[in-house]
């Protein structure tokens, strides 16, 4: 057997690489096709805006949509200011050294904590220790801690991308450091911060494990009245429909999956669009 010529080897290798790359993103296509194809039929105004009935085997998913909306809003209200301030600290104040290295490692680790462990943490701290009970408040805070690394990392990247000269110009014109951050740095980092925030929203909207023990209600066909109420949420509802309730009509499952997938993918699309739009018209 003679050795293959380098050219043929290369052609074979590149074909295999291409095949791998296609395989990796194939599930995206499959997921979208299967869910859209089977779920579209279930989507109606009634499905989106009414309560579930007959033990979730009929009716709509309105409370789950509202619940997810509340949870995500709560998570952002908590995580955005905190994450943004942390990013400002890292980008504008921290000097290279032990502390900033520890902070960086903490962010990496926080991003790597399993989602179910966030659930345990939320249960122990927010539900029990702070006595919030299983509630929208506890769930939002848990999700907020979970998306903190997403927001810190992307905001920091956005702040670091603002040219150093903007800061120097502002300081040289007699602005204080805080004024410099507010007027010469933050406005130009806004698109990046927005992108990170939207990605965080998408992440929070899709997660199930952190809300399992902190807020999620199995079946609660009414809207939450306060932040101390339990609530249904789309991802948990989908989990319940697909594994816990026998004899659920196929369209209801797929319809729920479609609504959840649409929300999450729209968030990502928005983030990507903002990113590429501002990258294209960047002025410096």
């Amino acid at each position: 057997m003679t050795a293959l010529s380098p050219k043929i080897t290369q052609r074979v290798a590149f074909s295999l690489l291409l095949a791998s790359a296609v395989t990796v993103i194939l599930p995206v296509v499959v997921v979208i096709l299967v869910i859209v194809k089977n779920g579209l039929a279930a989507i109606s105004w009634e499905f989106l805006t009414t309560m579930p009935r007959s033990g979730m085997r009929e009716g709509g998913i309105f409370p789950a949509i509202v619940g997810t909306f509340c949870l995500v809003a709560g998570a952002i209200v908590f995580a955005l200011p905190l994450g943004l301030c942390a990013a400002i600290y890292l980008s504008e104040y921290a000097r290279q050294g032990m502390l900033s290295r520890v902070v960086r490692l903490a962010i990496v680790n926080l991003a790597g904590v399993p989602s179910v462990v966030f659930g345990l943490f939320g249960l122990a701290l927010f539900v029990d220790f702070f006595r919030f009970g299983a509630s929208i408040l506890a769930g939002s805070l848990t999700l907020g801690v979970m998306i903190l690394p997403v927001i810190i990392t992307s905001s920091r990247e956005a702040l670091d991308a603002v040219p150093k000269s903007f800061r120097e110009v502002s300081l040289s014109l007699g602005a204080t450091k805080l004024q410099t951050i507010k007027h010469a740095v933050l406005p130009h980092a806004l698109p990046g911060i927005l992108t990170g925030t939207i990605l965080g929203i998408g992440r929070a909207a899709g997660e199930t494990a952190p809300i399992l023990f902190t807020v999620a209600a199995f079946y609660l066909p009414r809207l939450p009245q306060s932040v101390f109420d339990q609530a249904m949420a789309l991802p948990y509802h989908l989990y319940v429909l697909s594994t816990q309730v026998p004899n659920v009509g196929v369209p209801i499952r797929y319809g729920t999956a479609l609504v959840l997938l649409t929300i999450v993918l729209l968030m990502n699309l928005a983030a990507v669009t903002i990113r590429s739009h501002f990258r294209a018209k960047k002025k410096w």
């Binding site: 000269s165 903007f166 120097e168 110009v169 502002s170 300081l171 040289s172 014109l173 007699g174 602005a175 204080t176 010469a184 130009h188 002025k283 410096w284």
Partner: peptide
């Protein structure tokens, strides 16, 4: 330093208008 820089201004090598 803030008061100082209001008394001592600087023009940089490259034009640096803010956007």
């Amino acid at each position: 330093p803030v008061i100082l820089r209001r008394k001592v201004g600087i023009i940089f090598a490259l034009p640096t208008p803010l956007p």
